[in-house]
């Protein structure tokens, strides 16, 4: 029996690139696009594509969109779930490689890292590289998981992880929350090198460095106020 692999793509106003991103994934997977209340024409841009299309009625954030996708995938009987960015930053060729690692190394989660190969590291813009190194330390202190990368959105997980991870962080702090839950639920994990393509589009759309402070505050509030 072949396993069902669900690719989860949270998306907000990615009309310009979303078709290309989805087409780059081929036909081997179940693709779930979670449209986080886009105000552009994303819905029509993907209407004829063979994907599951879910839409939030109001904008909740990337973490909420991923959690919606994970709940949907769980209900559909997914065996493996992949977190994949809508802006085309991630490399579709990494998916099968990560799935192989998931199976052969008997882990629950495979996390992408830009800091394991020199060529991936050099592709990161300088300012972002510095910020990621700081974020790595903050992540380590908060989650207890000392990884080489921080806030890399490319992840592959099996059913055990899918059942265990429940994101409450609606916005960008979910990346830290995932690490905290991996530790709390005692999920087995490994990092694998991945190449992120920084296009002009993705850098304009991507997180600003000020966002790091929002993430930090969100993590603290959710940890101590909820």
């Amino acid at each position: 029996m072949t396993e069902r692999v669900f690719i989860l793509i949270p998306s907000y106003n990615e009309e310009k690139v979303i078709r290309q991103t989805i087409r780059s994934l081929g036909n081997a997977y179940d693709i779930v696009l979670i449209d986080d209340a886009s105000t552009d024409d994303t819905e029509n841009a993907v209407r004829d594509l063979p994907i599951y299309y879910l839409r939030h009625e109001i904008n909740l954030g990337q973490g909420a969109a991923l959690q919606t996708g994970m709940e949907f995938a769980r209900q559909q009987g997914a065996d493996i779930v992949v977190h994949f960015d809508a802006d085309g930053q991630h490399n579709p060729d990494d998916i099968d490689r990560f799935i192989q690692v998931l199976k052969t190394q008997s882990v629950d989660v495979v996390l992408g890292s830009r800091f394991l190969r020199k060529e991936d590291l050099l592709a990161i813009p300088r300012l972002r590289r510095i910020l990621l190194r700081v974020a790595r330390i903050v992540n380590g202190l908060l989650s207890g998981l000392w990884l080489s990368d921080a806030h890399n959105g490319f992840r592959v997980m099996n059913r055990r992880a899918l059942a265990g991870i429940q994101l409450k962080e609606n916005r960008m702090a979910h990346a830290t929350e995932i690490l905290m839950q991996i530790r709390r639920k005692q999920l087995r994990y490994v990092e694998q090198p991945t190449h992120i393509i920084y296009t002009e589009y993705s850098q304009v759309k991507g997180q600003r460095w000020q966002g790091a402070f929002d993430i930090l505050i969100d993590v603290f509030i959710n940890k101590y106020f909820r």
Binding site: N27, I34, R47, D48, L49, P50, I51, Y52, Y53, L54, R55, H56, E57, I58, L60, A64, Q67, T68, E71, F72, Q75, N170
Partner: peptide
Amino acid sequence: IITQIIRQNAIRNHRPPSQKA
């Protein structure tokens, strides 16, 4: 609460694949 309502609506009203490429 709002997140849960929005999420359940999104899942319930999902559009399945229109065709297999």
